[in-house]
Design a protein around this nucleic acid. Structure first.
Length: 142
DNA sequence: GCCAACGTTGGC
DNA sequence: GCCAACGTTGGC
């Protein structure tokens, strides 16, 4: 199975990149949008995930990976929503501001720009590679 | 703090 | 099923 690539957004006041660095792995819960939920459910273990910091100084911060595939969101009593686990992989040496993503012609079709309110979205391999390059990330990926 | 985009709710 | 009202997200 080909590896898939994703991007997740969170406000630093809710959960910051530094929190993921500290925790190593965390429960990605609280998503309450059907499209985002469907994306969570499509994640496979080992898929790589960009961590995007929204609202306050919006920028890409680092790389994570799917550590546990979708299960019932523990914060949802109705069992309607899903959560996954996300594990820390590594920081971007140069965090990529949203303005830089917006200014990059080859990223004009990225969901981060076209669907600004979606909080869990897929990235193409090309988009993922371009963002890694802009962030100066050299790996490793495990 | 403002406001555009957009998802959800509920009356009809 | 339509659509107006409303609430939320998130950039600026």
């Amino acid at each position: 199975m080909q590896k898939q690539y994703w991007l997740v957004k969170v406000e630093p006041e809710d959960y910051a990149w530094e929190d993921l660095v500290r925790d190593g792995e965390t429960v990605w819960s609280g998503v309450r949008n059907y499209q985002a939920r469907n994306n969570l459910r499509a994640m496979k273990a080992g898929d790589l995930v960009f961590f995007y910091q929204s609202v306050k100084n919006p920028q890409l911060r680092g790389v994570a990976k799917v550590a546990r595939t979708a299960y019932a969101d523990p914060t949802d009593a109705d069992g309607k929503w899903s959560a996954v686990n996300i594990a820390h992989v590594g920081p971007l040496p140069r965090p990529v501001p949203l303005a830089d993503v917006r200014a990059e012609p080859s990223l004009s079709t990225i969901a981060l720009i076209r669907q600004s309110r979606l909080s869990v979205m897929p990235l193409s391999p090309e988009e993922f590679a371009k963002l890694l390059d802009m962030g100066g990330y050299q790996g490793p990926f495990s």
